[in-house]
Design a protein around this nucleic acid. Sequence first.
RNA 1: GGGCGGUUAGCUCAGUUGGUAGAGCGCAACAUUGACGUUGUUGAUGCCGGGGGUUCGAAUCCCUCACCGCCCACCA
Length: 731
Amino acid sequence: MNEKLLKPYNPQETEDRIYKTWEESGFFKPENLPGERKEPYTIVMPPPNVTGVLHMGHALGTTLQDLLIRFERMRGKRALWIPGTDHAAIATQSKVEKDIQKQESKSRHDLGREELLKRIDIFARESHDTIITQLKKLGASCDWSREAFTLDEARSLAVRTIFKKMYEDGLIYRGHRIVNWDPKGQTTISDDEIVYEERKAMMYTFKYSKDFPIAISTTRPETKVGDTAVAVHPEDERYKQYVGKEYDLEFAGVKLHIKIIADKEVDKDFGTGALGVTPAHSMIDWAIAERHNLPKPQVINEFAKMMVGDERILNKKTTEARVAIVEWLKSENLLTEEKEITQNVSTAERTGGIVEPLPKLQWFIAVNKEFRGTTLKEIMKKAVEGGQINFVPEHFTKTYFHWINNLNDWRQIWYGHRIPVWYRGNEVYCDINPPENGPHSAEASRGAWEQDPDTLDTWFSSGLWTFSTLGWPHSAEASRGTPNDLETYHPTNTLITAYEIIFFWVARMIMMTGYALEQIPFHNVYFTGIVRDAQGRKFSKSLGNGIDPMVIAEKYGADAGRMAIVMSGSAGTDSKLSEDKIKGYKHFANKIWNVTRYILENTKDLETPDMSRLTESHKKLVEDMQAIVKDVTKDIEEFRFYMAGEKLYQYFWYTFADVIIEESKGMLKNGSVEEKISIQNTLRIILETMIKALHPFIPFVTEEIWSMLPHSAEASRGKPKQLLMVESWPQ
RNA sequence: GGGCGGUUAGCUCAGUUGGUAGAGCGCAACAUUGACGUUGUUGAUGCCGGGGGUUCGAAUCCCUCACCGCCCACCA
């Protein structure tokens, strides 16, 4: 017997060595798998951001994906798990900028585009290497030869190809839209970069002029020089008589044309019940203006200075203009009320500047526009409605449908896929490659083509993830009879991802795949919850309550960490994880180890276990065990990983070890020869079956034990013994 | 304001189609030179959030209330 078995199980000594054996076997690559394997099983990894290191959430996702892939590989499928990392555009840029600011007190404008990109690149590469090492540590059986990065050349080509296609289909267009502008940082910022601060502010109630019939309230009188309407609720009796009327007036030296309109968005009980509509500088007013076809003049520029008016306000800061306008209102006797209120002011996370909503030229995707008899929204709806795509848990379909109408804005940042559009005067050129008569051509004298400085939001490229990782668009062209990756492995089977990104990512993958391939990207989506600490708090740096998966793997073994995390929750619900729980599964690994020692010690003369040597009562024991494995199989197929693990754990410890093995002791000592042989065979059959069934959960210790078993069941059928990872799943 | 969850043993959570409530951890007592103390045996603890309904029968289905949490929008 192997000497290692005489000591307690030592994951530190085992896991890295086992992983190396797997990698060297080549079995992570589906082409190398033994036997005839026709049916594919594909998972594409949600690419972790290259902004740092893996956390417990990644460990959960990685474990479940590996569990499924190992399960299906053992079931004889052509199992492919494609790994990758994400450039995480805004998060990465932001992280690097923060670091540089901290260490060198320089902004990105000090560095310039080139230098910043270089720095980001170095950071991203280091972060990438860390992440890959960590994935391996967890036992991830990915095909590393197919690894992808969301910002590499293959993905970039896919992005440009799709962009061009959408542009030509009229699904991508350019238009004005209000963005959150940070005048201090001179940049657009996304919703999650906004910090709300409670501040005291004055709310002013006034009329535009003496002849104007309705008073309005605002905390920002200076924006009122951009007003084009006053909106009231359609059922507001006070104002019904005015709806539809239009007024020309002069407000603090600015000529305004104000139309009275009725709109349901207006709250009758807020202020005077009438809303002065400033289309260009308020999200909601913009929407109202769109509905009522109102002009949307911009009156505040990118430096938060006034663009209109006379010397009292022109080129003044908004705050100064506000004072001037309030003074004017007072002098004209138009101000009826001044009230102090507390309001939430949006500020930029990075610079602390107050966010100024401004209209900007943006690229859009037209989700409701018809093309080839459908719309992008229809594509997203139908795939889930028709049951082609199955959500686990099912209730997320409700959330999905409820939110399908919301698409987020593009973000304009420097780190990402450049928009493949070039401008020359009024000409616009969109293609996969730059225009030939570009900046360096003979035609340059007519003026150079300039590429759009913006980059696409990360979701544009990640939306293509399932098929851009499988070779599209090259494979589509290269396909001449021989099956390629895209044909073989797409649509993928299961996506395992956090529920937080159902809209950011899942919906967009469905949309982009439907658009590009007229396929679904995956059949199943399994949503994981958030992994929290023992007290239910989110893991965070500031709380210092993080459980680092790598520390866990070092301390208790990756197997213990995997098992604990699988057992800590079901689909779509947040789970709580504590070190105690992980410790418990380290004990489990050791229990299996000790059981193996006992069985090998007591079945030394047994070569290959044989079902026909069993007594009737022992046969019954094996059948009971097989029934459990059958249940477990069904549980995994239906994504009840927790239940599957629980059943195996319970059976192994409290039936196999505590009952069957305990009872075997008497038989081995005092039983008849026949009984002895029978129990020996029984022990080995159950052990081997359990080791196989446990492999997807705790791959390292099971593989190690497998290597110590004298003869596998396969060997009895005349086949050479092979790695457990490619053994067949027990029937 | 719109939407989605949750409420089961001290704690964390399971409970697949309605059929006398489960696990882990924790707790208590006992055992033991055993494959394993990273052990075993035994045990205690539940009006399954409140109320109503359907049913022979409800933790499970329906209605309603309460509390907790999350997501999105908005805050003139």
